[in-house]
Design a protein around this nucleic acid. Structure first.
Length: 573
RNA sequence: GCGCCCUUAGCUCAGUUGGAUAGAGCAUCGGUUUUCUAAACCGAGGGUCGUAGGUUCGAAUCCUUCAGGGCGCGCCA
């Protein structure tokens, strides 16, 4: 249960019931009050700004409302032990001991779901979608993990999520890639020298793909590229996607769905989609201005079909056709998004790299146009990852045409650390990734810090010989928690709110920060036992009920949180 | 020229549907292990929240100006 939302409703009801005493005319949803976690030093469970919000609305001193509301809330809501006025008019609320136990019992009923707000949205999350022309590199890694964890998060919060990968297996790049494989094959088979140029893919992995294809197709004739193209393209793409899927799997990422661009083209979906837009009169035949940025040698002033995206807030209208009349990448992507819309998702999310920022407006315009603004598309951008080693910018030695791949990364750093560190920042700021720090086993490496917290909890359970997974039944109606336990308990009760805000904003890094803070409180409490036996968890082989319950609660939150991040939780370190 | 993002402690960053004395980590300095895991803990110093205005009882958060940094600006994908 999310206690903040729960008591928000109770407070609203209590206020509504007493509008006469408060001398206000009405109280409805237009008045946006908040219930949240007060800072630690105020030593209370909840706080609300209702007095201040009313003061603003009715132009009175917040103190007047606060005094009245204190009495009203104490009288109307049995769960409130006391209500204190603080600061500019905050009401700080302490819950009764018995309701605290009820809240804990509620968590123990279904611990694996504790934190979920049980929303029922249907999401499609498209992420990675790297061109199938080679293995993943570090740049893809952040978006991949962000997308995967966001999916876990939204699922945990009750949503249904389809994780999707759009394979750009159509167009010039794929032609060039296939040609590169072809030339590497001829290099191996006929000792022809591979001559690199800007259009080709020179990477070593292309040789590896060529070798595999040669082995699997001993009788194939490699003399006429044009005749061979369709077949070789398929073979090359299959190998390429195998590499990508293997890399993703090593990072713990498995997509539900792979959608092929060529498939959409072959099924005539582009024509159908453009027709839909034409019917809505969002398409015109005409000319576009020469683009402002870098000079484009291939630019021609030719009449073509254009999507009127400026009607939806884009900076300029966008071409659906190239100058030879074939469809643009954008046209294909619009068709793909039309397909997503037809699958009845509530919310579409695209995870993009920073270099695609300029693309967002046109594709959201297209989704608005096609769905009559009913389906929402959110594009989340991941900024660059800057690699460091011991504080110095890091470049791995690499062969011509290769790049720092996910594979290279995994040779030095384990999956858990990569996943945790890649989420250690808001997605729209640049992230420094230091190879040295990330393998350190100290507080500087937050993944260990949080894992260690769970290992310590597990160690207590081992010592008292209770299986951590056992169900816990509380018999008592009240329990005496010490000051450290109360702090941990309040933090634990804040967990559903963290899930709520992280889901609402699509910001999984909030979970990382929360887990770190929870771990800090826990390690602090643990160390108190070194200074004072009074704070030891285990005395004479036995544990106090209150400590036991708090340990279990912290464990539940860490387990659920790390489950979302997709990081393991060793019981011993 | 235009669009999006960023600017918070020496460094790297949290914190924005406007709220309490602006928080962490690192670095610096000083402490804590016969003890349930020191991969840990405790303490100290460190801030005109880029600039200048505006709205408000109240602004890191909203609006406007300017400056600095990043990414883009295709009829590539």
């Amino acid at each position: 249960m999310n206690i903040f939302n729960f008591y928000l409703n109770k407070i609203k009801k209590a206020v509504l019931k007493n509008i006469k005493i408060l001398e206000i005319e009405k109280f409805d949803n237009s008045i946006n009050i908040q219930v949240e976690n007060p800072p630690l030093e105020f030593n209370s469970d909840l706080s609300t700004n209702v007095a201040m919000v009313l003061a603003k609305k009715y132009k009175k001193n917040p103190k007047i409302f606060a005094d009245l509301l204190k009495k009203i809330l104490e009288k109307e809501i049995n769960d409130f032990k006391s209500v204190e006025i603080a600061g500019a008019g905050f009401l700080n609320i302490t819950l009764t001991d018995s309701i605290l136990i009820e809240l804990i019992k509620d968590i123990f009923k279904d611990p694996n779901k504790y934190g979920s707000n049980k929303l029922k949205n249907k999401y499609n999350i498209e992420f990675v979608s790297a061109n199938p022309t080679g293995p993943l590199h570090v740049g893809h890694c952040r978006g991949a993990i962000y997308g995967d964890v966001l999916s876990n998060l939204l699922k945990f919060n009750g949503g249904s999520v389809v994780k999707e990968y759009y394979i750009n297996d159509y167009g010039k790049q794929i032609y060039n890639f296939t040609k590169s494989v072809y030339l590497r094959i001829r290099e191996i088979k006929y000792k022809e020298k591979f001559i690199n140029n800007d259009d080709l893919y020179p990477g070593e992995y292309v040789k590896d793909i060529a070798i595999v294809i040669l082995e699997n197709n001993p009788k194939m004739d490699f003399n006429n590229f044009d005749q061979l193209f369709d077949k070789l393209k398929k073979l090359s793409l299959d190998e390429s996607m195998k590499l990508i899927k293997t890399d993703l799997k090593k990072l713990g990422i498995i997509h539900d769905n792979f959608i092929s661009e060529s498939d959409l083209v072959n099924k005539d979906l582009i024509k159908k989609t453009v027709k839909k837009l034409e019917d809505k009169e969002f398409v015109k035949k005409g000319f576009l201005e020469r683009p402002k940025g870098e000079e484009d040698k291939n630019w021609k002033k030719t009449e073509r079909l254009i999507f009127k995206s400026t009607m939806f807030g884009d900076d300029s209208d966008r071409a659906l056709q190239k100058n030879d009349g074939s469809w643009t990448y954008f046209a294909n992507d619009v068709a793909y998004h039309s397909n997503k819309i037809d699958r009845n998702f509530d919310i579409l999310i695209n995870i993009l790299g920073a270099d695609h920022i300029g693309y967002i407006k046109r594709i959201t315009s297209a989704v608005d146009a096609l769905s009559n603004k009913r389906t929402k598309l959110y594009c989340k951008v991941c900024q660059l990852v800057k690699l460091f080693k011991g504080g110095q910018p890091y470049k791995m030695s690499k062969r011509a045409g290769d790049f720092i791949s996910v594979n290279d990364l995994l040779k030095e750093v384990n999956k858990d650390s990569i996943r945790f560190m890649m989420l250690n920042r808001n997605n729209d700021v640049e992230l420094d990734f230091d190879f040295e720090k990330v393998v350190e086993k100290t507080k500087e490496n937050p993944v260990y810090y949080v894992q260690y917290c769970f290992a310590r909890i597990s160690s207590i359970f081992r010592t008292i010989k209770i299986d951590y997974e056992n169900e816990i039944k509380i018999k008592k109606n009240t329990l005496k928690f010490n000051e450290y336990e109360i702090k941990l308990l309040r933090k634990v009760l804040n967990w559903p709110k963290v899930i709520e805000s992280a889901s609402f904003k699509y910001e999984p890094h909030r979970i990382i920060y929360f887990l770190y803070e929870l771990a800090t409180l826990f390690h602090g409490y643990w160390s108190k036992g070194n200074e004072n036996n009074k704070y030891k968890f285990i005395v004479d082989g036995k544990i106090k009920d209150s400590s036991f319950i708090v340990l279990k609660l912290v464990g539940i939150v860490i387990k659920n949180g790390m489950g979302i991040i997709g990081v393991s939780l060793p019981s011993k370190m």
